[in-house]
Nucleic acid binder design. Structure first.
Length: 424
RNA sequence: GGAGAGAUGCCGGAGUGGUCGAACGGGGCGGUCUCGAAAACCGUUGUCCUCUCACGGGGACCGAGGGUUCGAAUCCCUCUCUCUCCGCCA
């Protein structure tokens, strides 16, 4: 959620930023926000002075009764009763204005960083960096959905039987490859100074709201019917919510966490031929890094996180490119996002395997996540996160890029975890 | 799931209707003392909203939400969570 003080003081910038993000009617919405806030403040002010009066009289009744001045006390009681009626009306309308204001603020996305390119479509994204050679495969090269059948390592049909589409079963060396990747990612993260977290994979609505999945992505999360819990779409949600409602000591900054969880996404309305196989699933595993920084440090940290993710891809010998998302492609809560895409030769496609974002104070504002600065003032922190990495597409790329006539070669760094060098 | 107890500030822990935002202790911070440190002593120490250029003022918050009352941390109701015992159980 954007900060009201920021909206009020930098109104023009906010409207401009929202335009970049393709938010409709930015100007009207912002005016409405300010109007509602003015209304709320006026009501608050009136209510406060009324309550002040009420409190003073109530206190005086106490002393009047002690002094035995019963009649005067009764008279005062009558006055307070009237004041109370008025205060009730005032506080109701204040709560109403507050509610409307909040609802409106929830619909407004984060403002993009000034370096975010203009644009609407993925084609407007900016490619910043490419690494590795696209493998040239022979005539018999297969996409991963054929390879997994050929070697019997991942089974979609079984998943259909047990659950439904998008819930594959990993078998034998397929399962072991996944586990190897998880171990590799977690150990690399630990070496890079991240503390490992194992969070719950169910979250309550408050957590969903704090990191911005609710109300924006309501329909994208699986929801329980008996309790108001949701299955996490990413470890970002529970891990970031660890720090909800807290004032971090500056000695504890920066915070660097890593977590491996299964993620669940309904992906409503996004199926089709372009998302075959492992490209898009309802359930998948992901290792996520989450960082918390002061505003001075957060963009340096974002760059470092990208470097870290690049390092993983290089170690896995996967050709990739790094792109900076344009305004229209940027997520609801993000101010700046870099995507990492690996080239998967079997389907001749770039696959997004990581998304690294700085949310600046957008999440922190809802989270009430602050630190005490040198003047003892509470200041909102910046939250950042990134996939490091999402498993299925990495598996897809490894299978496709490393296929040979003799089987699939396992990248060197993973062999100590898999215990085998080839899937035959 | 059944029975009982409880939820107070950074922590421990008082407070059962009237200046209680909250005693007391610990911790933290500042100071005196010291070459320095410890000890001792003195002072200080929550969050949010709001008015004010500022000094400063007002309001809200004692698990959450309602209610009673002129007045609630204190009484009543609902919910959530924690603990103990029993049951069940990876």
């Amino acid at each position: 959620m954007l900060q009201l003080t920021h909206i009020r003081s930098k109104k023009e910038d906010v409207i401009k930023g929202l335009g970049k993000k393709r938010f409709p009617d930015a100007e009207a919405t912002i005016s409405q926000v300010i109007e509602l806030d003015d209304k709320r403040r006026a009501l608050q002010s009136d209510l406060d002075s009324l309550l002040n009066e009420l409190n003073q009289i109530s206190r005086s009744i106490g002393s009047l009764l002690k002094e035995g001045k019963k009649e005067e006390a009764e008279l005062a009681k009558k006055t307070t009763r009237e004041l109370k009626e008025k205060s009730k009306i005032l506080s109701d309308s204040m709560a109403e204005a507050q509610g409307q204001l909040e609802e409106l603020l929830y619909t407004i996305p984060n403002i993009p960083h000034e370096d975010v390119p203009e644009g609407v479509k993925p084609e407007d994204n900016l490619t910043l960096f490419e690494w590795g050679d696209v493998p040239v495969l022979g005539d018999g090269a297969l996409p991963h959905w054929d390879l997994i059948q050929k070697y019997d390592i991942i089974d979609f049909k079984l998943g259909n039987k047990i659950t439904g589409a998008g819930f594959p079963v990993y078998k034998g060396k397929g399962a072991k490859l996944q586990r190897a990747l998880v171990s590799f990612f977690l150990e690399e993260a630990e070496k890079a100074g991240y503390m490992e977290i194992q969070p719950p994979v169910l979250i309550n609505a408050e957590s969903g709201r704090a990191t911005g999945q609710l109300p924006d992505k309501e329909g994208q999360m699986y929801q329980l019917t008996d309790e108001e819990y949701y299955l996490i779409p990413t470890a970002e949600v529970p891990i970031t919510n660890i720090y909800r409602d807290s004032i971090i000591s500056s000695d504890d900054l920066p915070i660097k966490n890593v977590g491996f969880t299964t993620c669940f996404r309904r992906e409503a309305g996004s199926w089709g031929a372009h998302v075959r196989g492992l490209n898009r699933l309802h359930q998948f595993d992901k290792v996520e890094i989450v960082e918390i920084h002061t505003s001075d440090e957060s963009y340096k940290a974002l760059d470092k996180m990208c470097d870290y993710v690049k390092g993983l891809l290089i170690k896995l010998e996967l050709p990739f490119r790094m792109i900076r998302l344009c305004g229209g492609d940027l997520g609801f809560t993000s101010a700046m996002t870099y995507d990492m895409e690996v080239f998967s030769a079997g389907q001749q496609k770039w696959l997004e395997v990581s998304s690294v974002s700085n949310f600046e104070t957008y999440q922190a504002n809802r989270l009430k996540l602050r630190y005490k600065d040198d003047n003892g003032k509470n200041v909102l922190l910046h939250t950042l996160n990134g996939s490091a990495l999402a498993l299925p597409r990495i598996v897809a790329a490894i299978l496709e890029n490393n296929q040979t006539e003799d089987g699939i070669r396992i990248p060197g760094v993973l062999q100590k975890y898999t215990g085998f060098q080839v899937i035959k």
